[in-house]
Design a protein around this nucleic acid. Sequence first.
DNA 1: GTAACTGCAAATGGTTTGCAAACCT
DNA 2: AGGTTTGCAAACCATTTGCAGTTAC
Lengths: 159, 159
Amino acid sequence: MKKLDSSFKLIKEKLHKAGFKLTPQRELTVEVLLEKEKDHLSAEEIYLLVKAKNTGIGLATVYRTLEILTELQIINKLTFQDGIARYDLNMGSDKHQHHHLLCLKCGSIEEVKQDMLFEIEKEIERDYHFLVKDHRLTFHGICRNCAEQDKEEEGDVNG
Amino acid sequence: MKKLDSSFKLIKEKLHKAGFKLTPQRELTVEVLLEKEKDHLSAEEIYLLVKAKNTGIGLATVYRTLEILTELQIINKLTFQDGIARYDLNMGSDKHQHHHLLCLKCGSIEEVKQDMLFEIEKEIERDYHFLVKDHRLTFHGICRNCAEQDKEEEGDVNG
DNA sequence: GTAACTGCAAATGGTTTGCAAACCT
DNA sequence: AGGTTTGCAAACCATTTGCAGTTAC
């Protein structure tokens, strides 16, 4: 809980400094985001999780909170191919976005922490005269789990 | 027009082979996509352009046509951060997606033809046991035009 | 001739907005 | 106390769907 606590404090400070009030709804939303850091939740999912914490909250409030948090760069708003916005804590590196692995079978989203794009960004800046501020990189493919399952199924068919 | 003609023929063949009828609406939609190859049009924009060709067409038909073309991998459906689907001809390389440069000022979308990600994909497959099929890479930043405009404006202020 | 296709209008689903009541500070 | 925030319901907007009439093959 140590790490969560300090992140929590940091985020609350950021909100406060930017002149926003610390309402229970906002605190709970941040809490959920911290608890499910790896899950790339949609607004709806966050809404349900906050509600499950025995507190009433409106979906609109969740959207409004997420908008604020995005503005303050506390979270990133991501849109994968289904067009639904998903949110992603932006702790630590205020710099560039990490990458994502989107499984075409089960829809899971895994994170790739390394950046890997420094060289390519330099190329882009040089060759296209485009000043890179950030990037979004998603690989589409088959995750480890699904690949293993596929193998098992093949086995079933043949055996 | 030579290149467009042959692309057009190729696409019509693909449709035909897959058992789809060649209706005027579909032909015109493909025509628009070929003419505006660089523009990353939305469904609505395609709809308006087809209608402008003096033919009536329904928005639903455009969507349905785009769905078919996406299925047949003739076009790619792309979703940038605004959540609106945009479409992109997939001529030549049925392989991996090229990259995009999205300008944060003017919203323009430029293409990067080179792939640049072979090495990184290999790393991903090795380190994450994730079988990469495709990727989406978008750089967010300031395009050449906007950067130049910014400089001019600075000049105005100071002079 | 007939299954596929079209166009309209209505439905859907994620997101936004208006407004009166409730709440931080 | 006063501006901010909330929650509901209605509005919005891109996209999808149902269905009766039309068309490509």
